[in-house]
């Protein structure tokens, strides 16, 4: 069982990490913009995108993404982690992207990255929706505080007030949000993995469930649980770096 988990887990970690990165890199600025431009079109746009991204079934979104971006437009590679031509060329040791980079195989790296973009984007939609909405609400609360008004009165540039002072204060809760979002993606990746023929832990647990392989299901679930605990611990440790009060 450990050998199986060691084989499937890196694929899920790669997918969830890419999705979370997308969610954070796009979701945080989107949330900030929505808060700054409250009740204007950027705010409406982010809220609508958040509403659409969250409830739409990932199964449907994945298939539609494949039809549009893979079949019709040809912008991304199709299902699977790697093109068939590269199958079995690289001995897996860690993650596929890392293996290819360490081996200096940039053609394989590029192909694997092209396969990762669509499933990570689809999965990242959920992370993006969640993170942008929470960032917006954190920022709205923060922008009402007196220290923000004082900073503006003192003539601090608006971008510095928003991106440095207000967002800086929001970073602590946002770290927890991002960590929990990462954990959720690990467990919710199973549908994305099914649609994209992604050989990850989510699909492995699902197929074990259908085969009534209780040990495998328990093993996979324990791994996801441990990752949740680890992420929680990691975000607590990050508090000390981000929040001066936590260091005292």
């Amino acid at each position: 069982m450990l050998a199986d988990i060691a084989r499937f887990f890196p694929a899920t970690v790669g997918l969830a990490t890419a999705a979370t990165l997308l969610g954070v890199l796009l979701g945080v600025p989107a949330g900030v913009l929505a808060a700054v431009h409250r009740d204007r079109w950027p705010d409406h746009l982010v809220r609508v995108l958040g509403l659409v991204g969250y409830p739409v079934p990932v199964f449907w979104l994945g298939l539609m993404g494949l039809v549009l971006f893979y079949t019709k437009l040809g912008w991304v590679e199709g299902p699977g982690r790697l093109g068939v031509a590269f199958e079995d060329l690289l001995e897996p040791t860690t993650g596929l992207l890392l293996d290819a980079a360490l081996a200096g195989e940039w053609e394989i790296f590029a192909n694997a990255l092209a396969h990762l973009i669509l499933p990570a984007s689809i999965l990242g939609c959920f992370s993006l929706a969640y993170i942008s909405r929470t960032t917006r609400s954190f920022m709205l609360a923060e922008l009402r505080l007196e220290y923000v008004t004082i900073a503006r009165v003192k003539g601090v540039p608006e971008w510095r007030v928003v991106w440095r002072h207000a967002l800086g204060s929001c970073l602590v809760p946002l770290v927890t949000v991002a960590a929990l979002s990462y954990g959720s993606l690990l467990e919710s990746a199973l549908l994305t993995e099914t649609v994209f023929a992604w050989p990850g832990l989510g699909r492995y647990i699902t197929e074990s469930l259908f085969d009534a392989d209780t040990n495998m299901v328990l093993g996979g679930t324990i791994v996801v649980g441990c990752v949740f605990i680890g992420l929680d611990l990691f975000s607590d440790l990050l508090y000390r770096l981000l929040d001066p009060e936590a260091r005292t």
Partner: peptide, 21 residues
């Protein structure tokens, strides 16, 4: 011959129509 495990039939169809399998 490369045999890929593709659990979702709709995905199989897309791969076939695209010519990747």
């Amino acid at each position: 011959v490369v045999i890929r495990h593709v659990p979702e039939p709709a995905t199989q169809r897309l791969l076939l129509e695209k010519g990747d399998v």
